[in-house]
Design a protein around this nucleic acid. Structure first.
Length: 871
RNA sequence: GGGCGGUUAGCUCAGUUGGUAGAGCACCGGCUUUACACGCCGGCUGCCACAGGUUCGAGUCCUGUACCGCCCACCA
């Protein structure tokens, strides 16, 4: 096709559809109108027939459904949607599923309260169970499968509300591919991946000290920790040196753990304590003989330089305990209460067992906090507390969802090997394309700070069970080494109700029989498989081949250490590959006072309220104004600006389409200049969007559009009504229609509703399936090349017009005031452009006489017509 | 303690290879102009955190400092 032909075709296609512009265009109701149409026409349906190279696949973050969606979700999901819409218009088949994270603790808590039930995994499944209408006083125990059914029932309701919000926001998701982290497919993939890792020795079970939440009574992983500043106090406590006179003093914030003390420790180079290494001391109150040992982790600067090692007060204790081969004296139970101890028995030897028992009996059954208060009194009474406790605030480790500090409890847990893969995982991080790039540092930080393998087991109920049974020995104990595993074809299974091959239900939990693994996997152990879940790994190889590895993982920066890292780990272990090419990291929404917006603070503004007040396009405008990775203030003002932009698009389009004929070849300099400017905007916008730089595209498109409205439109208004004859009117119309078409498509990823509305006035099909604009298409309408002279002419005319408006404004005269004489002083090169724009300029500025004079810089002298003579 | 961002107009932020500081909001003034009063036109506002350095020239590059925010850390 020659350029000439393409020009003609382009012009024909500009008006190939009857133009029908409403009299009073408005934004109200556009969401409902177009959502229904998009759904009916399956505009966002993924085309799974295209090859991988023509697919753009997105690994959507599944929001937690038991919480509520907030503006932060709207913010980051809009970013993703802008990219999705851009890629779709570029001709990609966009694989954009939505998921719900319904698996996990938050859902459990809601279901317990909502239905008045309690999960008892020892119960068999009751298919006929119906929850009471109202929750009763005492929770009804139900089996794990029944409990999970209730979770599914409740989350289904939440998911409907979420979907409604997402649709209203205009997310171009293919809703036929929605998944949930607790659905059968997710469970199957999660269990399948687990079994494969187990088979390769990449996951293992171990009984070891583990971080433990005493309220939830479950193990937690390093990634779920957070530090909180807590008030505490240094207690200076003295230990008698065994077999001779003298005392050693230590500082401790946890004096209640003195009964669990197994050693004291000081730095090997600390001259104060060198002589004591190898000797024993006697613990106060309990009279236990413990050694004084050297270790480099002991800090001479802290406290007295001697630390008390307990089993277990913190993670350093675990390190010391392991490296110094110390015994265990555990006193805190899984519920956080002090266990009963019989002093004098093996492991609890004391120089005065009855005195120890006396002290300890006052502590047994207490929580750590209460025990601390009690033991301080005991220490004070015995004279072993030196001075008063010195109040301090210090950072204490908490489970991020927990209310009490974590304890360390010895238990049997499943781990995924991570420590030995740190180097290759760092390399994966370097191969991943981060947006913005500095986010990679957080990933590396996390890996470099890893303290141990990933604990994936949780002592909870609503989650994916471990697909494992164990043989039960003749004595009734469980043989954890004798695992019974299901065939992959049976997955998903629940070992609390399903039975291993070759056994019957009667053999459950009886000697010689079997026992199911009681634990479930951590949420992240499943959600780290979202790429595998959405692409239907090991279920639909054809689909998998078309979408995996995926193109984009969008998410927020707070879950780099969990979701992102875990997903990279799983893909590395399973496929020896990255799960995606790009990671686009959104920032957070901050309160106007720059603090992180928190749900607990009671942000009463729900996303739906925002969408209704400002329109979806307005809210999307605000969200898309923030660059990737930038924390952004919540700003309704920006939403109003976005809404205004959408209204402006309606009105400007109405004007352009009000008299679209005659249309023809774009010949006038300023028309060609406009298209040239727009062509370079399109070219740069395409490049920016390819690099996830959507905020810049929106900003620049908006600026151009405003220039188009304020200056260009005003300059060509008269001409396009025919003031200068049909050919020049045709040129103006050609440029207006061409520019409008491109601008609408430029805005379409950001403002999907208003652009679709305007598109429907004069074009067939959905704008969201239209081709992304190109510089070539714009330039072919104006000839075949860029026209920098046209750009200069347009800018020159706009500058003169501004000067004339300024004069009218200064004189406080109406803009329709005529200009008797305008003297344009400018460099010769500029003046040479004047003939090209003179007639447009005089029409737009109501200039009666135009004179010129050469000058170094542009300057316009304006003499307004007298009030009487201006009509 | 380690790391990463940030510091530009009253507010929110742009500023792409270094070349005489920008936008929007807010504020002030004006205007019904045949798309838009959910509008239009115009105006005001800055030792670009601070101190050095490189350069003919630094908001931009280098070094250091301060403050803000975040991530991480074995915090007795």
């Amino acid at each position: 096709m020659t350029n000439q032909q393409s020009t003609i075709n382009n012009q024909q296609s500009l008006l190939s559809h009857p133009v029908a512009v409403p009299d009073k265009p408005a934004l109200e109701g556009l969401e409902q109108k177009w959502l229904a149409k998009w759904e009916a026409d399956r505009v966002y349906r993924f085309d799974r027939t295209v090859p991988r190279s023509d697919v753009f696949s997105i690994d959507t973050p599944p929001p937690t459904v038991s919480g509520s969606l907030h503006v932060g979700h709207v913010f980051s999901f809009t970013h993703t949607d802008v990219i999705a819409r851009f890629q779709r218009m570029r001709g990609k088949a966009v694989f954009y599923p939505m998921g719900w994270d319904d698996n996990g603790l938050p859902t459990e808590r809601r279901v317990q309260n909502y239905f008045g039930v309690r999960c008892d995994p020892s119960l068999p499944y009751d298919p006929s169970f119906v929850p009471p209408d109202k929750p009763g006083k005492h929770p009804i125990p139900v089996s794990r499968p029944n409990f999970i059914e209730l979770c599914a029932r409740l989350t289904a309701e939440d998911e409907k509300a979420f979907e409604h919000l997402w649709r209203h926001l205009g997310l171009s998701v293919d809703w036929s591919m929605t998944y949930a982290t607790i659905d059968r497919r997710s469970q199957r993939i999660s269990q399948l991946s687990f079994l494969r890792l187990l088979d390769r020795g990449l996951t293992y079970q171990l009984e070891a000290p583990t971080l433990w939440d005493v309220d939830f009574r479950t193990a937690v992983a390093q990634a779920e920790l957070e530090d909180r500043e807590q008030p505490g106090a240094y207690h200076r406590v003295r230990f008698a040196i065994a077999d001779r006179d003298g005392h050693l003093t230590i500082d401790t914030t946890r004096p209640e753990l003195i009964p669990a003390c197994v050693a004291l420790v000081a730095h090997p180079d600390d001259d104060r304590y060198k002589p004591l290494f190898g000797t024993d001391v006697i613990t106060p109150l309990f009279g236990v003989r413990v050694p004084v040992r050297p270790h480099t982790l002991a800090d001479p600067e802290k406290g007295t330089g001697v630390a008390m090692i307990c089993t277990f007060g913190d993670v350093t204790d675990v390190t010391w305990w392991r490296e110094l081969s110390l015994p265990v004296r555990a006193i805190i139970q899984s519920n956080g209460a002090f266990r009963a101890v019989r002093w004098g028995e093996r492991g609890w030897e004391s120089v005065d067992a009855s005195r120890a028992q006396g002290h300890y009996d006052e502590l047994a059954g207490l929580s750590a906090v209460k025990a601390r208060a009690r033991i301080v009194e005991q220490l004070r009474a015995s004279g072993d507390l030196i001075g008063d406790p010195k109040p301090i605030t210090h950072a204490v480790k908490f489970y991020e969802k927990g209310d009490r500090p974590l304890e360390i409890v010895t238990s049997r847990q499943w781990f995924v090997k991570t420590m030995e893969f740190r180097e290759p995982l760092l390399a994966r991080g370097r191969a991943l394309q981060w947006h913005p790039p500095f986010m990679q540092a957080r990933y590396e930080n996390w890996i470099n700070g890893l303290a141990g393998d990933w604990c994936i087991s949780r002592q909870r109920f609503f989650g994916v069970p471990f697909p494992v049974w164990y043989e039960v020995r003749a004595d009734g104990s469980i043989d954890y080494d004798a695992r019974l595993l299901p065939d992959e074809q049976r997955l998903p299974i629940d070992p609390s109700t399903d039975v291993p091959n070759g056994y019957t239900e009667e053999q459950r939990n009886v000697p010689g029989g079997f026992a199911g693994d009681p634990d479930i996997m951590d949420t992240w152990a499943t959600s780290s498989l979202t790429p595998q879940i959405v692409s239907r790994w090991e279920e639909d190889p054809d689909l998998f081949g078309r979408v995996f590895p995926m193109d984009l993982r969008p998410q927020a920066h707070d879950i780099i250490r969990t979701w992102l890292f875990d997903t990279v780990l799983r893909a590395h272990l399973e496929f020896n590959a990255l799960p995606w090419k790009h990671a686009a990291i959104s920032g957070w929404i901050l309160d106007p006072d720059r603090k992180k917006m928190s749900k607990s603070k009671g942000n009463v503004i729900t996303p739906m309220t925002l969408l209704e007040e400002h329109g979806s396009d307005g809210v999307r405008y605000w969200a898309a104004s923030a660059r990737m990775g930038t924390d952004t203030a919540f700003d309704p003002g920006q939403m109003r600006v976005g809404r205004r932009l959408a209204i402006k698009l309606l009105n400007a389009s109405r004007f352009v389409l009000a008299k679209p004929e005659p249309t023809g070849r774009v010949t006038s300099a300023i028309d060609r200049g406009l298209l040239t400017m727009l062509a370079s905007l399109v070219r740069e916008s395409t490049r920016d969007l390819d690099e996830f730089n959507y905020a810049r595209v929106l900003e620049r498109s908006e600026a151009f559009f405003w220039f188009f409205c304020d200056d260009y439109l005003e300059l060509v208004k008269g001409r396009r009504y025919g003031d200068q004859g049909p050919d020049l009117a045709a040129s103006a119309n050609g440029a207006l229609l061409t520019a409008l078409s491109s601008m609408l498509r430029l805005f379409a990823p950001f403002l999907p509703f208003v652009t679709e509305e305007v598109w429907s006035w004069w074009r067939a099909g959905s704008i969201h399936q239209a081709e992304w604009p190109s510089a070539e298409e714009l330039l072919s309408a104006g000839g075949t090349s860029e026209d920098p002279r046209g750009v200069d002419a347009l800018n020159f005319a706009a500058a003169v017009l501004t000067a004339i408006r300024k004069k009218k404004s200064e004189e406080q005269r109406p803009l329709k005031t005529a200009v008797a004489v305008a003297v344009v002083q400018a460099p010769a090169a500029m003046l040479a452009l004047l003939p090209e724009v003179e007639r447009d300029l005089c029409a737009a500025g109501l200039i009666q006489r135009l004179e010129t004079a050469e000058a170094d810089a542009l300057q316009v002298r304006v003499d307004l017509a007298s009030p009487e003579s201006s009509a």
